[in-house]
Structure formats: structure tokens, C-alpha cells
Design a protein around this nucleic acid. Structure first.
Lengths: 117, 117
DNA sequence: TCCGTACTACGATGGCTATCGTACGAGTCG
DNA sequence: CGACTCGTACGATAGCCATCGTAGTACGGA
């Protein structure tokens, strides 16, 4: 099992051309979700949900990941008990060139500028 | 009166360093508001509220403009009975380099791609 | 002064959403 | 099998928000 055959549990994702800018912006307008995306971008590899230390409960975490997936920002795949999350960089870059980078930079800058909140 | 002295009616704007990324993204996650910003960007000069032909009533229009102003995306100044609106390009570019352009490009692209909705 | 235009304020309303807790399903490991 | 971990589903709740209509204010021109 070098690359384990995916579980039957498959999650619905929007196709590339179904991704809407409004939905992406709405998804990223929540600080918790922006943080998730930020960490995901730094990681460069898929991360399981439990790798994030978020200031909300597990149910809320599930909710946020779903919003990100349904808006097309991330990709989710079951791997055993874990659910691996990856940024949909290619799709986003193809649809909205430069946007993801600008958003990540903006987020990092703001974090650096004022660590309050 | 080449440049009319501003009316005493002054509107509250966030200072540059009070502009929050989340608020900007939230403001722009509404199609109506994104459209306003898009037209404002094309105009290059300040426009009065009534220059926009939006699919909502006047009260709702007022609401959207206020959200844009309070999030720091636009600047509003009374000029007689009209309220002139301008993009806060300099502030946004200073805070979040490349973001505004990426957003405008993304919006234009999406509009071009599918004119549905 | 009177009227019209531009925009606002207020209140209502329906819908969305972030949050939680609890109970459950799916895998993994002993 | 049994226990443990990871994540989900469901229901509840409270707050926000896009929308509207109506009534009102501010300004400029006749």
C-alpha cells in the first residue's frame, strides 16, 4: 500500500469552473479559515484536520473545513481515520491568477503588523 | 469654487492601519459590492452613488456603500447633495500589495467567463 | 420660499452562520 | 472483540446581515 486505495467515503468538491469568487472571498473572510489556509500554504503537503490547533471545538472545525472545501479552496481526502487537506493551488491560480498569493501575503503581513486579536 | 470646500457633514472612515483583511474580504464577498468596486476601479475618478445602476433599492444601496466605507475599501465625501465615492487604492496597495489588482482581475475574469448570474 | 433630488435613518423580516454539546460511525491497534 | 482516535451528524442558539418600505434631512435651483 504505497498509495492506499481511497476509501469509498468520497467528499463532494466543486469542479474548477464551478468555483465562485464570492464564495472564495466569503470563505476567507473568517479569521479561523484564513488561518487554516495560511498554515496549509506553509505546509506544502496535505495535513490532517487534527494538525491544526484552532480556538474552536471539533464540530466547529469540521464546519470550517467543509466551508473551505465547498467553496473550492481546499481538497479533502480520507486516509484511514484521518482526513487530509490540501490547497487547490492549481485551480485557484488558473481561475484567479495572483489572487491566492496576494491573499496569503496580505494575511501574513497583517499578522506581523499587529499581533493583537 | 474650483474645489468646493467640503461640507460639514463628514463621514467616519477607518485609518489605514485600522483596515482589516477580513473586513475587506467580507465586503467584497457580496456581488453587489464587488460590482461597485469594479465600476469604481474602471472610473478612475470619484462617482456619486446615483451613478450606479444596481439591482437593489436605494436603502440597500446606501447599506452597501457604508459597508464598503467602514471596511476601508472606499472613501466617501459629500459634495452638495451627492456623495462621491472613490477607491482607497493607495491605502489598500500599501497594506496588501497586489491584492486589489488580483481581486479586480478575478472579478472581471469571472464576469467574462460566465455571464450567468 | 417652495420644490425636487440625493441620500439617510429606522424598523421589520427572513435567512444565513459561527458556535457549541452530545451522540454516533469508521478505522486502527492491541 | 474491545478500546481508542478521528472526524461527522444533528439539533439548538444567538448573532449578524441583505433586503425592503416609509419617513425624514440636506442641499440646490426656480
Amino acid at each position: 500500500m504505497t498509495t492506499a486505495p481511497p476509501s469509498p467515503r468520497v467528499l463532494p468538491h466543486p469542479a474548477r469552473d464551478e468555483i465562485r469568487l464570492e464564495s472564495v472571498l466569503h470563505a476567507l473572510s473568517d479569521p479561523v479559515r484564513m488561518r487554516i489556509v495560511s498554515e496549509l500554504a506553509d505546509a506544502e503537503a496535505a495535513l490532517s484536520c487534527s494538525r491544526f490547533d484552532l480556538p474552536v471545538t471539533k464540530s466547529t472545525t469540521t464546519h470550517h473545513f467543509r466551508v473551505l472545501r465547498e467553496s473550492g479552496v481546499i481538497q479533502q481526502v480520507y486516509e484511514g481515520t484521518a482526513k487530509m487537506n490540501g490547497l487547490r493551488r492549481e485551480d485557484l491560480d488558473a481561475l484567479f491568477p495572483g489572487l491566492l498569493n496576494a491573499l496569503l501575503t496580505a494575511s501574513r503581513r497583517q499578522t506581523a503588523r499587529g499581533a493583537r486579536a
